Amino acid sequence: MRMIRCSSPLLAAVTLVLWATPQALSQEPEPEPRPPYQANCRTEINGSYATAHCHNPYPITDRVRLHIECERWWDVDVDSAPTGIDPAGSVTLTDRCWKEIRAVWVSHQPLVS
């Protein structure tokens, strides 16, 4: 039986590929920069109620809407009316589902005059 010999450059190349592959796969994509009109919003869920606190640091009015997806199939999802946040302004939006909440998010739209 004859043994196969590996040259050290080949062994180094294989080691590098095996080491680099998990590193490359674990890198997360860069987050996209926010448009320069989107207010800073944070959401919180308390039981069946959802609240969004938004502050607009930009010189353009931002129209925000609170969206709530309810957990139960028979529970109606909620979309609030658009609310304008003037520059340096803040707003709190609150709404609810009858039962549990699955997801909450805020959408943004610039108010162009």
Results as ranks from 00 to 15, higher is better:
63 R>S: 10
55 H>E: 11
22 P>N: 10
9 P>H: 07
109 Q>E: 14
25 L>H: 12
20 A>H: 05
67 H>D: 09
69 E>P: 00
1 M>G: 10
86 D>P: 14
104 V>L: 01
109 Q>V: 05
82 P>M: 14
90 S>E: 10
85 I>P: 09
97 C>V: 05
66 L>R: 05
55 H>A: 11
96 R>Q: 15
26 S>R: 12
86 D>G: 15
31 P>S: 02
69 E>A: 12
58 Y>K: 03
62 D>G: 03
109 Q>R: 10
36 P>T: 03
86 D>H: 15
94 T>A: 06
84 G>Y: 00
4 I>P: 00
98 W>M: 01
44 E>A: 12
63 R>A: 09
76 V>D: 12
103 A>P: 01
19 W>M: 14
26 S>Q: 11
36 P>Y: 09
24 A>M: 11
28 E>S: 07
63 R>K: 01
70 C>I: 10
44 E>Q: 09
34 R>E: 08
33 P>Q: 04
57 P>N: 13
110 P>C: 09
47 G>C: 14
109 Q>M: 10
56 N>T: 01
2 R>A: 08
13 A>N: 04
56 N>G: 02
49 Y>V: 15
10 L>E: 15
81 A>Q: 08
84 G>A: 12
4 I>V: 12
65 R>A: 07
67 H>F: 11
99 K>M: 12
48 S>I: 11
94 T>L: 00
38 Q>H: 01
105 W>P: 05
75 D>R: 01
51 T>N: 05
68 I>L: 07
25 L>Y: 07
111 L>V: 08
87 P>K: 03
81 A>S: 06
32 E>W: 07
3 M>I: 11
101 I>E: 10
3 M>V: 13
113 S>A: 09
75 D>W: 01
88 A>E: 11
107 S>I: 04
41 C>I: 01
98 W>R: 07
21 T>K: 02
95 D>G: 04
92 T>W: 05
41 C>K: 02
24 A>G: 12
96 R>S: 15
105 W>T: 03
27 Q>P: 00
110 P>K: 02
73 W>I: 04
31 P>T: 02
50 A>K: 14
75 D>M: 01
25 L>R: 13
7 S>D: 08
36 P>Q: 06
46 N>E: 15
39 A>H: 00
37 Y>W: 11
49 Y>Q: 09
91 V>G: 03
49 Y>M: 11
86 D>W: 13
10 L>D: 11
1 M>A: 09
73 W>R: 08
44 E>D: 06
9 P>C: 12
47 G>D: 14
33 P>R: 09
48 S>M: 12
